[in-house]
């Protein structure tokens, strides 16, 4: 039982790490702000969710678990808002988005 939990937690952490890394590579590779925002979105959703859920499985039933899940909820609620605000500001302040 304990083993299943730790294996699952490891899986989640691995998925989270991989997506976080890919998102960051995207932030460096993509050609302009808007496309970079897409890449940042990967880190913010699956990356963060993977890492936090993996840690939550390690935490077991406690206040810690609640806090980790709450943190995930906050991240998932706030990041798109910040992302949209950034896209909107960039749209107003910058030239048009990069096209192929």
């Amino acid at each position: 039982m304990i083993d299943i939990m730790s294996i699952a937690s490891g899986m989640f952490l691995l998925v989270g790490s991989v997506f976080t890394l890919i998102g960051s590579i995207g932030i460096v590779r993509m050609p302009d702000v808007f496309t970079r925002l897409h890449a940042a979105g990967i880190t913010d959703t699956l990356g963060a969710a993977g890492v936090l859920l993996g840690l939550a499985l390690k935490a077991g039933f406690s206040l810690l678990l609640v806090k980790l899940l709450l943190m995930l909820v906050f991240l998932l609620l706030l990041n798109p808002t910040a992302c949209h605000a950034l896209a909107r500001a960039a749209l107003h302040g910058l030239r048009r988005p990069w096209m192929d």
Binding site: F34, L37, H38, A39, G41, I42, T45, L76, L77, N79, P80, T81, C83, H84, A87, R88, L91
Partner: peptide, 13 residues
Amino acid sequence: NSITLTPGTITLE
């Protein structure tokens, strides 16, 4: 927000 949360699409306005 759902559009922005889904990578690959971002709400501009």
